[in-house]
């Protein structure tokens, strides 16, 4: 794959109530956006386990989007705040792993903001396109080894954090 033809593969975790519906609205309103984000529905952005993001990156995704309701508008009252805090921790981990910050983005979009979500998708795709492929999946030959190596990195990182804490 030449650099010019690089089409980022991105996984999007969208909450059932706001951002997934924003994507639905973008559809009904025919708001065109980049086709690179493959959407996975979760009930709440609070459901997004950081390991989902790591898994996606390990499986060959070049970027990840996490989208939820606006702070204060969570369907489950305040779970998106938990997503926000986890995202901070995740960013810390990703920095340690050498993954550029812009590859994993947290977005708020209400069910009425199809335009906003479409713009966020375009922005993420543009950011990742600029960064180029992550090539995490290609760093390990075999599937088992790849996951093992990833787990080792996460584990080491956790230990390092415990020591500093």
């Amino acid at each position: 794959m030449s650099e010019q033809k690089f089409e980022p593969k991105i996984v999007g975790f969208l909450c059932n109530w706001c951002s997934y519906r924003a994507a639905d609205l973008a559809g009904s309103a025919r708001i065109q956006h980049a086709p690179n984000v493959r959407i996975i529905r979760v009930m709440c952005s609070g459901r997004v386990d950081p390991s989902f993001v790591l898994k996606a990156l390990a499986m060959g995704a070049d970027g990840v989007m996490i989208a939820g309701c606006h702070p204060g508008e969570c369907h489950y009252l305040e779970q998106n705040y938990k997503a926000m805090r986890r995202f901070g921790m995740l960013q810390h981990t990703l920095r340690g792993l050498g993954v550029e910050e812009k590859r994993v983005q947290l977005v708020w979009a209400s069910a009425a903001e199809g335009q906003r979500l479409a713009e966020a998708i375009d922005q993420l795709v543009a950011d990742v396109r600029e960064l180029g492929p992550l090539h995490w999946a290609g760093n390990w030959e075999e599937n088992g080894e790849r996951l093992q190596a990833l787990e080792d990195i996460v584990h080491e990182h956790q230990e390092a954090m415990e020591v500093t804490a």
Binding site: K9, V11, I40, M43, S51, F52, A56, G60, A61, A137
Partner: peptide, 22 residues
């Protein structure tokens, strides 16, 4: 475990979504 949105289900979905990278 979260019924209908279990880790296993979502992991499998991620894997499937990236079938061409994987």
């Amino acid at each position: 475990s979260g019924a209908h949105f279990s880790d296993r289900q979502i992991f499998a979905q991620i894997q499937g979504a990236l079938w061409d990278a994987w």
